[in-house]
């Protein structure tokens, strides 16, 4: 594994009034890995993503993306640097069709303004066609060709999640942050989504940060796992180490059950 880190968090501390949401969180993501963040409800997983994409500004610590400190930048500037994300509860533009949602995702890459766009001739038109081609590639990649002109408000849940992923890809991301991409899905949809995540990682070479509750899945697809409890790191490492880490088992199952689990394991 290369040690070229693309995104790193250093001693992040995030506070809401008296509540410490994140305390001394540090990790760095390499250019070639799927990095999973797990933890019980309210551990601060989504807060980490919100800090990275600029919704929250941490009181202490730095977020560094490719040698630039991004922790004080507004969200749209961070997005333009190439950090894309999806949302836990889908945040699509429900009034637009799938194609338009993805085209809206190309916003950062488009150079024209409302004057050339309004003329719709020459550069304005050429840009539309050029980016449309890019968007169609993403649509093919995610196998949502049939939904191209459907308003996303009418799509089923699993498909909307997929369009959300597509819109994040439309940003040409250097890092992709996925906030519970498989929440509320059935097994089949989960498998599809896992396949897409692995495809994105392997064919487009985009490092992925994934926050997810489905342990089995996380352990299967991720290269490194970071475990969070009450805003603090309790473990990090490859999945094989994490599953046998007693602290992680405590956090997830509680002490009684943990003993029970280990006992069961011993018996086997």
């Amino acid at each position: 594994m290369t040690t070229n880190s693309i995104l790193s968090l250093k001693n992040i501390r995030l506070q809401f009034g008296g509540i410490i949401a994140l305390n001394d969180v540090s990790f760095s993501i390499n250019e070639r890995e799927i990095f999973a963040i797990i933890g019980p409800n309210g551990a601060g997983k989504t807060s980490i993503l919100n800090c990275i994409s600029g919704f929250y500004s941490p009181q202490k610590g730095q977020i560094i993306f490719k040698d630039d400190v991004i922790s004080k930048l507004p969200p749209h500037k961070i997005a333009k640097k190439g950090i894309a994300r999806t949302f836990q509860n889908i945040a699509l533009y429900s009034g637009m069709s799938t194609v338009e949602n993805l085209m809206a995702g190309r916003h950062a890459a488009m150079k024209q303004n409302f004057l050339t766009g309004g003329l719709f001739y020459g550069p304005g038109l050429n840009e539309e066609i050029k980016h449309r081609a890019v968007v169609e590639k993403i649509i093919d990649f995610l196998e949502i060709t049939a939904l191209r002109n459907k308003p996303v408000g009418t799509l089923p849940y699993g498909m909307r999640k997929r369009v959300d992923l597509g819109r994040a890809l439309a940003l040409d991301p250097k890092v992709l942050l996925l906030d519970e991409p498989m929440a509320g899905m059935n097994v089949e949809e989960k498998e599809d989504m896992a396949r897409f995540i692995i495809d994105i990682y392997e064919t487009l070479h985009i490092p992925i940060v994934i926050v997810e509750h489905d342990m089995g899945l996380v352990m299967d697809i991720s290269d490194r796992v970071y475990v969070l409890e009450f805003g603090r790191e309790i473990a990090s490492g490859p999945p094989s180490e994490i599953v046998s880490n007693p602290q992680v088992i405590d956090a997830y199952l509680g002490r009684e059950e943990a003993n029970f689990a280990t006992r069961e394991k011993d018996e086997r």
Binding site: G54, I78, A84, L92, S94, H107
Partner: peptide
């Protein structure tokens, strides 16, 4: 439709 998502889309 969604100003939060618009922000993270640049």
């Amino acid at each position: 439709d969604n100003d939060l998502a618009a922000k993270v889309q640049g």
